[in-house]
Structures are given as C-alpha cells and as structure tokens.
Design a protein around this nucleic acid. Structure first.
Lengths: 134, 134
DNA sequence: AATCAAAGTGACGTTAACGTAAACTAATTG
DNA sequence: CAATTAGTTTACGTTAACGTCACTTTGATT
C-alpha cells in the first residue's frame, strides 16, 4: 500500500510550499489558471491543484505567458486521449525554441558589439595614460 | 575644403532619417536626453543633436535603459578630458556583458529543457500512433 | 459573546518606453 | 482670407505579472 498524499493546502501553505506569494496564487485563480474549492470562503487546494500549479510554474520558467499556459491547461482534462494537448504543447514548445534560438543569436551579436566597445574604451584610457582597471 | 553638413532637421525629418517615430524623439527630449533649439515652437535639430540621437539609439540596441544612457550623456560635454566618461562607459559595458553572459547561460538551460519536452512530446505521440509532424 | 488571527476582497500602484487621440497654434498656400 | 499642412501640447492608454494597502469577513478560541 502506498500512502497517497491527500493533504489539503490553504493559500499560504501552498504558497510556502511552492515558493511563491499568496498573492500570486490568487492572481492565477483570477486569471482562470486554477479553481480551488472552497470551505466557506477559504480556498482549499488538493494535490491535483498543486500539480496544476507546478505545471504553471514550469511554464513560466520556460518563458510562456500566463495566457499560453491557460490555453494549454484548458485542454487538460477536456481531452480524454490528450493527443490534442500534446500536439499543441509540441507546437508551442517548438515556437518557443525557435524564438529563443533567435534571441541567442541576437544576444551573441550584441555581446560582440559590447566587447568591441570595451576594447575601444580600454585603448582610449591607455592613450591617456590611465589604468583601465581602476 | 570639406563640405560640412550644416543641415537642420525638424522632428519628422529626423525621425524619418533615424527610423524612429516623432513621438520617440519628443519623448527623449522630455526625458532630458536631447535638448534641441527652437524656431518659435518648432524644434530644430543640428548634426550634433543627430549624433546624440545615434548614441542613444546604439545604447538602446545594446540593451541599456534610457536612464543609463542619460547618465552617460550627462558627462558628455561636461567632461573636458572625457576620461571619466569613458571609465563610466567601460564599467557599464562590463556590467552589461556580465548580465548578458548570465542570460545566455540561462537561455541555454531553458533551451535544453524545452528540447527535452519536445522529445517527450514526440515520443508520446508516436506511442499513440500519431505523426509528430502533422 | 468578545476577541483575534487568518483569509479574503477590492482597488490602486509599479515599470519602461513609448502609442494614440484630441485640441491648439503657427505658417504657408490658393 | 479661408483652408490646409505641420508641428506642438497634454493627457490618458498599453502590457505583464504581480505588490501593496486598507478594510471586511470568518471561524475558532477563551
């Protein structure tokens, strides 16, 4: 018998557990990313809710907007085979990979230009008899 | 005798010439980055003003904020030897290089994670007998 | 029942770099 | 001289993802 984790979390507890602020969790709810049940007015988060939050946070880490994450999650559960969901994920992930590779390219170009300016600055200071380190 | 470029620009002309909108130029003035003379109410930009704009635009391309660019430009002209200006520039440029190198690192990590997800998605679709390309 | 901490609910603030729209004024053109 | 064209001014709008307050509500405890 494996013990199932049937623990419930309140907002502050879940926030603590996930390393985010309570405001963030409530904000996500307002954006339709999570929909916890209530006990009176208090939000109750199950392990499934927590799993959803983890997906959201991973999405954020990977640079997706909350809107994109919401679109993805909308298929979650509404798609028995989950094929559509995975296809959509694959599409978005590939878009993001392309975007990041472009960014990487641009970043390298910028770095080169900055290094050139750095060198020019060093040279200029040397000509004035100044130490570029100081 | 070299012909000097003593042409003057109005806001829309300079904007056109630099590939920015008039609003941008006026915005920079409001932020204290440029201070063109006036002919009545109309702004008059000299070649020096244009040079300043080019510096600003380069700074932007390199990822500096308008505030940082403004600080840099404040030394421009107020520093006869220009040594301080160059030192400051060097400091900022190095900071920016460090930041971008960090960014590059993070970006690579993210890319790896995305590629992993891509692969997992492909595998999942294949197991369902679906073509990951479609 | 009074109290008290915890949770919730607006609602406005923040940041950066402009965009947009409306209303003005000044100068030129027919 | 009226109309058009240019340029200016002012102020609010935009975007994303929350932060920060101030205030109210609840459920629980004494």
């Amino acid at each position: 018998m494996t013990k199932i984790d049937d623990r419930f979390y309140t907002v502050p507890e879940l926030a603590e557990n996930l390393g985010v602020t309570p405001r963030t969790i409530r904000f996500y709810e307002q954006k339709g990313l999570v929909a916890p049940q209530r006990a009176g007015t208090t939000r109750i988060y199950t392990r499934q809710d927590r799993a959803r939050m983890l997906i959201i946070l991973r999405g954020k880490r990977l640079g997706f907007t909350l809107k994109e994450i919401a679109d993805y999650l909308d298929l979650y559960g509404a798609d028995p085979t989950q094929a559509e969901q995975i296809k959509m994920l694959l599409t978005r992930v590939r878009e993001r990979i392309d975007a990041l590779e472009d960014q990487r390219q641009a970043l390298d170009v910028t770095l080169d230009e900055l290094r050139e300016i750095e060198q020019q600055s060093i040279d200029a200071l040397k000509e004035k008899g100044l130490d570029p380190v100081a």
